[in-house]
């Protein structure tokens, strides 16, 4: 196997909502420019883990954490730096697409403007570039100034991907990004991840085994807030070490 560099390292991470412990001693190394898939039954803390990484849990009252999340040598869980800048290193794609209440163009330009890029002349080529990256350009080139809400759900999700890419992140966090989509839109997004991993580190939550098999380089299996097993994709599916993983893969529980 080729040498891997770790892009993001989660170390001894615990998280409580009030008195309830949701994440229990999580340790994961996320390799650079690879797709790491997180598998696990619903309610096991996958979304919470994602939201901890880009500090969206801060927006939820009563969340408390301990441990470290190291990104490029910096502990972003306890950093005193502006969180907005930390978040810009990661693009988030959530379960349901969330276009902002503005035009298609402005949805993508929103992120660019946050980075201080102003003026139509500078924005237009970049908006186009990111829409191409998200494989949406051909469908919207003639109606860039329509409200984003007029797009289909699948197109909206790709628009959200373009918006996320526009802030020039290093990591893409995708939380069951295809679960609300029709199969065709879902496979478009899936294929896009394939291409994007050349330049981005991707962390994907899914409960679709086939999707995991197809695009994962590394798989992490979680259960009740704990990491049960993590391994290279072939290793994980062909030779799982834990009994619980084997049960899960055989569909014993969801």
């Amino acid at each position: 196997m080729a040498m891997e560099t770790t892009k993001l390292s989660i170390q001894n991470l615990n998280l409580w909502f009030g008195k309830q412990k949701i994440l229990n001693n999580i340790n994961i190394d996320i390799p650079e420019n690879k797709v790491t898939v997180i598998l696990g039954p619903s309610g096991c803390g996958k979304t919470t883990l994602m939201k901890t990484m880009n500090r969206l849990v801060d927006l939820q009252g009563g969340a408390r954490t301990s441990g470290k999340i190291i990104l490029d040598g910096e502990d972003i869980l306890n950093t005193r730096r502006d969180i907005a800048l930390v978040r810009q290193k990661m693009g988030l794609l959530s379960q349901r697409p969330t276009p902002l209440p503005m035009s298609i163009f402005n949805n993508v330009a929103y992120g660019l403007r946050l980075k201080g890029i102003r003026g139509r002349k500078k924005l237009t080529p970049l908006v186009e570039k990111h829409l191409i990256e998200a494989n949406l350009w051909d469908e919207v080139r003639d109606r860039l100034h329509d409200p984003a809400s007029r797009l289909s759900i699948g197109q909206q999700q790709r628009l959200c991907l373009a918006r996320g890419l526009a802030v020039d992140p290093e990591i893409i966090l995708a939380d069951e990004p295809t679960s609300a989509l029709d199969p065709i839109s879902a496979s478009v997004i899936e294929n896009q991840f394939f291409k994007l991993k050349e330049n981005y580190t991707i962390l994907l939550v899914t409960h679709i085994m086939r999707q995991a098999r197809r695009i994962a380089d590394k798989v992490v299996f979680m259960y009740l807030g704990e990491v049960i097993e993590q391994a290279d994709v072939h290793e994980f599916f062909n030779n799982p070490k834990q009994k619980m993983t084997r049960d899960y893969l055989q569909g014993a529980f969801y």
Binding site: K51, N54, L56, L59, A84, L85, R87, Q88, M90, G91, L92, S94, Q95, R96, T98, L100, P101, M102, Y110, G111, L114, C160, R163, G164, A166, V167
Partner: peptide, 26 residues
């Protein structure tokens, strides 16, 4: 929707930007 606010934050908006560019518009 919470998701909308979260996604505005997730691209690195400050609270002011979320307030005036997203919440107000919406």
């Amino acid at each position: 929707p919470v998701h909308l606010i979260e996604s505005a934050f997730s691209v690195g908006s400050t609270r002011m930007e979320v307030a005036f560019r997203v919440m107000l518009r919406q």
